[in-house]
Computed example of a mutant assay.
Amino acid sequence: MPDQTCQADHCDSRAGFSHAAARLSHDPATGHPRPPRREFKARGSFVERCPGCNLPALNCLCPYQARAESEARVWLITHPLEHLKPTNTGRLIRDVLPGTEVFTWYRTVPDARLLELLEDPDLVPFVIFPDDQPDYADRVVDIQAVSEVKVSGRTPVFILLDGTWRQARRIFRKSPYLDALPVLPLSTTRQTRYQLRKPASRAHLCTAEVAVELLRQSGDVDAAQVLDDYFDTFNVSYAASRRYEKIEVSTPAMLRLVARRTG
């Protein structure tokens, strides 16, 4: 049973904090609320953005958008907060691969279209997730399983859990409709080149980089290269815009994308 004296002290402390906050937010002479010292703006809200690619207009990504076809498909189960981040790289996959599906994750309300697609016998989905826990070890497969699906005439699907590492774990653990699917851990020596968020480790790849490696390892080499070039262009363009620098000289990745767009 909690100590009642401590509870009383806690209540007094909270009351004191509330009174102090009230003094700071109100004029002591009139008792009227004080106006804010400056207009509140979210980070980056003042930046002029391209309506097409949502990047800062200073280095728009639209001239480099190129499409590619792949035997494997990619589905993104995206945490709601990721949709609000212009630095999210999952949308790059949809720009490049026209068959990409994006589903917003809600714990108690699964996406109806996702549930429908999971019942399609011609599609074989793999949940991309590390094999670091024993309770789903019997579901873990390797990249060879993807090749076997292709040989059978069916379509492999990479399901990427699009969010922070903590969010991805929550999606994996709190989505019963994923429990029967094979788990495919990504095995790669690639280190991240992502410049817009600081990863806990260079081995932690962003969503687009994971897709690039999966496509490459499963034989969709052309699609992997186009997506990798598009990711590099996004990475460089956004980083330059943060420094308020206009890119004057195209990178090799940019040149390859432009050449693909022009045939």
Score class of each variant (00 low, 15 high):
Thr207Trp: 09
Val226Gln: 04
Ser218Val: 09
Asn59Thr: 01
Ala8Lys: 09
Leu58Tyr: 01
His83Leu: 10
Arg94Glu: 14
Gly90Arg: 02
Val47Ile: 07
Arg67Tyr: 09
His79Arg: 02
Pro125Gln: 00
Phe231Ile: 09
Leu214Thr: 06
Val151Arg: 12
Leu115Ser: 03
Leu160Val: 08
Trp75Val: 12
Pro28Phe: 03
Thr188Cys: 12
Val109Gln: 07
Lys198Glu: 13
Pro182Arg: 06
Asp232Asn: 12
Ala180Val: 01
Ala208Gly: 13
Asp122Pro: 06
Cys206Asn: 15
Cys11Ile: 15
Ile128Asp: 03
Phe40Asn: 00
Asp138Tyr: 10
Pro63Met: 13
Leu81Met: 04
Arg170Gln: 15
Ala72Gly: 05
Phe172Asn: 02
Ser218Asp: 06
Arg193Val: 11
Trp165Val: 03
Val102Asp: 12
Asn59His: 06
Ala239Arg: 14
Asp229Arg: 04
Arg91Glu: 10
Ser45Phe: 01
Gln7Pro: 04
Asn54Ala: 13
Gly219Cys: 08
Ala22Gln: 15
Phe103Trp: 07
Arg261Glu: 07
Asp142Phe: 08
Thr164Trp: 05
Cys62Arg: 11
Gly153Ala: 13
Phe46His: 14
Arg169Trp: 15
Leu255Tyr: 01
Asn88Asp: 12
Val127Asp: 03
Pro33Lys: 05
Val47Gly: 05
Ile247Tyr: 05
Thr251Trp: 02
His204Lys: 11
Ser70Met: 08
Asp131Ile: 03
Val124Trp: 03
Leu76Asp: 00
Phe234Asp: 06
Ser13Ile: 03
Arg37Gly: 10
Thr155Val: 04
Ala22Val: 07
Leu215Asn: 03
Ala15Ile: 12
Pro252Ile: 13
